[in-house]
Design a protein around this nucleic acid. Structure first.
Lengths: 207, 207
DNA sequence: TGGTGTGAATCGATTCACAGCC
DNA sequence: GGCTGTGAATCGATTCACACCA
């Protein structure tokens, strides 16, 4: 396990999200072409992706939304990694807490860490903030597998090392520094400056 | 123009960044295998990517870092789209201003917009904040091509429409709502909740 | 009739492998 | 000898196209 492509996983997450919205608006069934246009994909790709989860629709009514959500969730959800820790309570860290606060998701932020005294001990967006010195033991005792790094760039490697040391196997790195981790640790680098330069490139040299 | 893949562009941006760091530490030349290991790619891919820019190295010393940076920049930089506007000065918007403040980049955030009176008229991280009502005219008079959306999800479509209306052709959408735009507008959706669920998936079901 | 599921075909991105060069 | 540049081969992701079905 697993040679499942990152692309398919991301799309399935998006499908589920869209399906949950549809369910709220009382829809019961959906066709691949509808889900495709809502997510910006082709119908064939939607069907191909859904094959992955094993769920089958019917030609007459398409996919039962409720059942499909369940099937996608069974495929995606990872009970061993349903909580994350966040390190770094600057604007970005707070933005993420704020963000995830309102949203229903199978993954929760369980605790946040910083070294600044003024945030330690506070509850922010329902998440308790601790001294970063306690991070490793927290990760260990709570068997946390996901780490979110929103500290200043210079400190990202140090924090990543601590996380990996304590048992984190998947990292969201929001700093502009590439971190070095063992091969078995998954890293997603979310670098806004790269995204911004990328946006610039595609602004006029249009595809 | 242009069927240049998003992948290559992102990697070139990363190469340049790494090369700039190397230049600061007084390095003069670099081999493809070194640049590859610094960025997590294969040497062949690095060489293939660099072909894109037209710059040529020599077997004896590899690539001249300074010249290579220049060549990548000529390829990437888009003078028509070197400034962006940011809409939404919550934590995320501020985090991005903070982020980009310290960093040298060919793309600058020229102005920020919000509807809250307490931020209008202020300067944050060297960026002036205006009333969102003035956004369209600002974009038009300054010929801005890039828009960054960090407003609450419910408002993202409305803001995107205004941006496109005023001439924006490339959008960074940080909200969890997919926005609908004309086909000729480039959109990059940076959805942290999707990234978090993605990280969960790959935390143990390891690649 | 207008869907789904999927093998086969295509398309695109990555890697191989080697000639040419310093 | 060890590198670059690159055509050719491979690998992976997407799309086509059609049998099958309710």
């Amino acid at each position: 396990m697993s040679n499942i492509s990152k692309h398919i996983v991301r799309r399935l997450i998006l499908y589920r999200k869209i399906l949950q919205d549809l369910l709220k608006s009382k829809a019961e069934f959906i066709y691949s072409h509808k889900l495709a246009s809502l997510t910006g994909n082709t119908p064939a790709q939607v069907r191909r992706d859904l094959m992955m989860t094993g769920y089958k629709g019917t030609p007459t009514s398409g996919y039962n939304i409720k059942d499909l959500i369940k099937s996608i969730s069974e495929f995606l959800d990872n009970p061993e990694a349903d909580r994350a820790v966040l390190a770094g309570l600057g604007h970005l860290g707070r933005a993420i807490l704020n963000y995830t606060d309102g949203i229903v998701s199978p993954v929760k932020i369980a605790a946040a860490f910083d070294k600044k005294q003024e945030v330690i001990g506070r509850v922010m967006h329902k998440v308790m903030c601790y001294d970063v010195e306690e991070m490793e033991s927290y990760i260990r005792t709570n068997k946390i597998k996901i780490g979110i790094i929103t500290v200043p760039s210079e400190e990202s490697q140090k924090v990543a090392d601590k996380m990996v040391q304590a048992g984190i196997t998947s990292i969201l790195n929001f700093t502009s520094t590439r971190i070095k981790v063992p091969v078995n640790v998954y890293v997603d680098n979310i670098d806004m400056t790269i995204s911004l330069e990328n946006a610039s490139f595609f602004a006029t040299k249009k595809f």
